[in-house]
Amino acid sequence: MKRSLEQRLKDGPVIVGEGYLFELERRGYLQAGSFVPEVALDNPDALKQTYRDFMNAGSDVVLAFTYNAHREKMRIIGKEELLEPLNRNAIRLAKEVAKEHPTEEALVAGNISNTNIFDPEDPASKDQVRSMFAEMVKWCKEEEVDFINGETFYYHEEAVIALEEILKHDLPAVITLGLMGENILRDGYTVEESCRILSEKGALVVGMNCFRGPDTMQPYLEKIRQNVEGYVGALPIPYRTTEENPTFFNLPDAGCSCELPLETTFPTALDPLYHNRYELAEWAKAAKEIGVNYIGLCCGASPAMLRAVAEAVGVETINSRYSPDMEKHFLFGEDETLKKHNLEYRVKA
């Protein structure tokens, strides 16, 4: 039988593949800038393959790609009439892929996210946000997801509204926060304070996702772990953020030889700033050691990166048979049948 999220967390760790937004833009099926997941309707096969690739790389969860598929984003691109079909189709495609798992059907998560219209000084914006979440959660419930992931909230109160709407439908909730460069949520809460409150209010998992790479997320994860009794989640971006530039929004690239269309490398010129998979694996080990239970990667992640993260915490993935093995490489292998004259050129290659 398919175990629930809570059962898997008890057996832990749970591996979660995110990052569809950047991955599908990289594959050519999503527009950078608006970042609306129209792919669920325009190119469903491309979305299914992306779901499949991350599941095969170790993800226990197929996260329905409805990030940014809320009424405000659909209004901006003038396609509000597609809001419900897009949400429902993204979930249905996720359910189809989840059933393909050869050993245990993957979990399917609904997804709601930051709206970018929340204003702590404007009660009307709070009502609008609640209405947006309510309709999306309702569709998730009707499509029978296993839990709902609410993510990338940089206002504590918006995260609370998301949690309240999820719990109204008696669904497990994962709530993760996006911490911007101020190092504090925009309504004044620290991430550890917000996570403690969210956990006490009933979220099954609380933690952080997006915006920050491992180096600038990990110190806050340690604080969250110290302040939260329940399960903790962490899904950093795979970029080399620093104390000076703690998020990917303002990461510089000193080696760039051309003028970029924006002032910074975000979002389409981040390529030279990746962590490699081995660095990400080391982070995953460190996250597990401090007690993070729900481990993954966010925007910019590739299936190969996620596989390295999963394997680092002891998970053998469906596609682990394709993990690197240099034994038979013509220059760097140790196989006795390799041509010796090639091996002499290792240093010179």
Rank of each mutant, 00 (worst) to 15 (best):
K2L: 08
S4P: 07
R8G: 03
D11I: 10
Y20E: 13
E25K: 14
Y29S: 04
G33M: 13
E38G: 03
L41W: 10
D45C: 02
A46R: 06
T50H: 12
D53V: 02
D53A: 07
D60G: 00
T66L: 11
Y67D: 10
N68R: 14
H70C: 14
K73M: 14
K79D: 04
K79Q: 06
P85H: 03
R88T: 05
N89L: 06
L93N: 03
A94Q: 06
A98I: 12
E104I: 07
G110V: 15
I112A: 06
S113I: 10
S113L: 11
N116M: 02
F118E: 13
D119I: 07
S125H: 02
Q128S: 11
R130C: 05
M132P: 00
F133Q: 01
V137K: 04
V137F: 06
E143H: 05
D146Y: 00
F147T: 10
E151S: 15
E151D: 00
V160P: 02
I161T: 10
L163N: 01
A173G: 08
V174C: 06
V174G: 06
T176L: 08
G178W: 09
N183F: 00
R196I: 08
S199V: 02
S199T: 05
E200G: 01
V205L: 10
P214Y: 12
M217D: 00
Q218W: 05
P219N: 06
E222P: 14
E222K: 08
E229F: 13
E229I: 00
Y231H: 12
V232N: 03
P236D: 08
T242E: 11
E243N: 11
E243C: 00
E244D: 13
N245F: 14
N245T: 06
P246V: 10
T247H: 00
G255W: 08
C256E: 10
E259Y: 07
P261D: 05
L262K: 13
T265P: 13
F266W: 15
N276Q: 05
R277N: 14
A281M: 11
A287V: 07
E289R: 15
G296P: 04
P303I: 08
V313D: 05
V315T: 05
E316A: 00
N319T: 10
S320E: 02
S320D: 14
D325N: 15
F332S: 09
E336F: 03
K339D: 11
L343C: 11
Y345V: 12
